Amino acid sequence: MRTALVIGTGLIGTSAALALAGRGVQVHLSDHDPAQARTAAARGAGTDQPPEGRVDLAIVAVPPAHVARTLHEAVQGGVARAYLDVASVKGGPRRELEALGCDLTAYLGTHPMAGREKSGPLAATADLFEGRPWVLTPTAGTDTEVLNLALELVALCRAVPVVMDADAHDRAVALVSHTPQLVSSLVAARLRDADETAVRLCGQGIRDVTRIAASDPRMWVDILSANPGPVADVLAGVAADLDETVRALRALEAADDGKRRDGAAGIEDVLRRGNAGRARVPGKHGAAPAVYESVTVLIGDQPGELARIFADAGRAGVNIEDVRIEHATGQQAGLIQLMVEPGAVAGLTATLRDRGWAVRH
């Protein structure tokens, strides 16, 4: 791949353009808002000038509702040898393209499983896709050259290719991406009118659950409008579980011992099913989930503190597998949880204490 055209310079389009430009590909940028394309170009993602001839690959990075029309116009204009989109739903756009009579041999639907709460070219980064799954949905009619160019794009962005059927992909992202967004927003919405005293008690649990609720509502309306059925199916199951959980909690309020036992059993059931589901989430580097233990340390909110604790962990010969930070409300301090292999806990704890850290049990 020597040349590429990125149509749509939001977070995903600009991030792909930055990755390609950084690896020597001549990237041309196009957007319905020329100012956004200029911003992406100013960040080093390519040029906002149109290509003089056909490019090797056209990447359509527009909201799902506009994918088919944008792709059809690009194919009709003959702007590239191969075309792909990066929208978060795949079945609908393909069927719309078929209805428009578009030749799909030169097209491949793809979806990089990466993103941020922020949007637009200023939020883009060249490493957004590194190590992340990038779904490809070829059909029997997909030209081999198109598939090879898509694989080259994935490699240049340092992502991991995953081949799936388009409709299977849409059902999967409904479960692992679209429904979590709505559930996070539903929980966060409870905070809008909550008493200030309650809000000040927010800890790491509520921060974890509501992190993605900060996402752009307009963007998510576009995404959910393109995949409503599968998302509604998942939410119907969640709603059924919620109904059962509410009944179990009400039973715990009952005076009857038998009802309280039934209520406790119902709560335990949903919690255990949650344990089982969480255990299936891939762990580090996509491997089976590992069991880590945490070493919790009080850390000040000053420059260099994180670097110092990581350096001290290195002196102990311990690899930090994951990190979580819980900030203390109204204080210039917090608790950092260093996730390590169980056998490393004693050595790390001893070293950190020797180095003056306040290790908490």
Results as ranks from 00 to 15, higher is better:
N148Y: 02
A159E: 06
G229T: 10
E145G: 13
D143F: 01
D216W: 01
A239P: 05
S177P: 04
L71W: 04
I223C: 05
T329V: 13
L252E: 14
T47A: 04
V154H: 11
E117F: 06
D195P: 12
W357K: 03
A344I: 07
A333K: 05
G286I: 03
A307P: 02
A288G: 14
V340R: 01
R171Q: 06
G304C: 07
R207P: 03
L201C: 13
T105D: 12
G115C: 09
S177G: 06
N227S: 10
G101A: 07
V281W: 15
E117Q: 12
T197E: 15
L352C: 05
N319P: 08
T47S: 14
R171T: 00
L252A: 08
A194S: 10
M339H: 11
A254H: 14
V146K: 11
R2C: 02
N227Q: 12
R218W: 00
R260Q: 12
Y292T: 12
A58K: 09
M113P: 01
S119K: 11
I336D: 00
A42E: 14
S225F: 03
L136I: 08
R280N: 12
A313I: 15
S119Y: 02
G8L: 06
I336M: 07
R192L: 05
G205E: 04
A350E: 12
E341A: 15
P180H: 06
T110K: 03
V359M: 14
R250V: 02
G77R: 15
D85G: 01
V297E: 01
A307S: 13
G91H: 08
L149G: 02
L122G: 08
R308H: 14
L84Y: 02
V231R: 01
T125V: 12
P64D: 02
M113K: 10
C157R: 10
A189S: 15
G78Q: 10
G304A: 06
G274P: 08
V25W: 01
V154E: 12
R353L: 11
G44C: 06
G317F: 06
A254S: 15
G92M: 05
A68L: 08
A16S: 09
L147K: 13
V345N: 01
A126V: 09
V359E: 08
E321D: 11
A4C: 03
P34C: 02
P228N: 06
E244K: 13
D301F: 04
R250F: 02
V340A: 06
D241T: 09
Q332M: 14
P228R: 03
A240I: 00
R116F: 04
L306E: 00
A198R: 10
R207G: 05
R38L: 02
A198F: 10
V62S: 05
P34W: 05
L104C: 03
L156P: 03
A194G: 06
V173P: 00
F129H: 15
D56I: 02
A254V: 03
